[in-house]
Computed example of a mutant assay.
Amino acid sequence: MQLVLTYFSNHFSDYILLVREHILISLSTVILAMIIAIPLGILCNSSDFLYKGVKGLFGTLRIVPSLAILVLFIPIVGTGMKLAVLALTILAIPPILINTALAFRTLPEAVLETALGMGMGAWRTFFIVKLPLAFPLIFAGVKTAVVEVIASATLAAYIGAGGLGSLIFTGLGLMRTDLLLIGGVSVGILSLLSGYLLNRLDHRITKYKTVNN
């Protein structure tokens, strides 16, 4: 414990920088994954063949270790944050994509028929009926992706992108238990905190929708 306190007293500003890098990598990854996965998941609703093909492709990519993806793309992208975000985005897309596709494929037909009977056009039906009904399942996919990305972003340090993984890799190299403890606990706290904040946001949005309904 004394070594941990000593590290924070001497390197607190460095620690804050690593935390900021870790959050930046994770946030960039999740935003990029959402931009790709949500529209693609909605598009999959139009075709069973497309749904099965996309689900199979990204399901296969998901089981490929992130470290292997990093190594494979180094000759193409180089090292640094771009490569880390690319590799982690491949990890983050499947839960968002699958949940989005599933959410739109399981919308209650009775509600959609009612919207059609009320004279709603395609765009109004999408934004007023479909999207609010699909939101809880989509958001659950986003929450899963966030937690997975924060945990996996430790690998970013392996290719020089920074983040809390730097502490873990340095600790492994120097056999420094204090650095391993600080890095591991910090990643765990970030994962738990992000999950808690997203759950609170989900609760607030769901509560707001319930009140309005």
Rank of each mutant, 00 (worst) to 15 (best):
M1N: 11
Q2F: 01
L3W: 08
N10G: 03
F12L: 10
S13M: 04
V19H: 05
I23W: 08
S26E: 03
V30I: 13
A33W: 03
L40H: 01
S47A: 02
F49E: 04
Y51L: 12
Y51K: 11
G59A: 08
G59H: 05
L61S: 05
I69F: 03
L72A: 11
F73Q: 04
G78M: 05
G80V: 04
L83Y: 04
L83E: 00
A84M: 10
A87T: 08
A92D: 08
P94Y: 14
L97M: 12
I98D: 04
T100R: 06
L102T: 14
L102A: 15
L102Y: 12
L102G: 07
R105Q: 14
T106N: 15
T106I: 00
P108Y: 10
E109I: 14
E109C: 02
A110L: 05
G121N: 14
R124K: 14
T125L: 06
V129Q: 10
L133D: 02
P136M: 10
L137T: 10
L137H: 02
G141V: 09
G141E: 08
T144I: 15
V147S: 12
V147E: 01
V147W: 00
E148I: 11
A151K: 01
T154V: 15
L155D: 01
L155C: 07
G160Q: 13
A161Q: 06
I168R: 09
G171H: 13
M175K: 11
D178E: 15
S194R: 04
S194Y: 01
Y196W: 14
L197Y: 01
L198G: 07
N199S: 15
R200Q: 09
T206F: 00
K207S: 15
K209N: 13
T210D: 12
N212K: 09
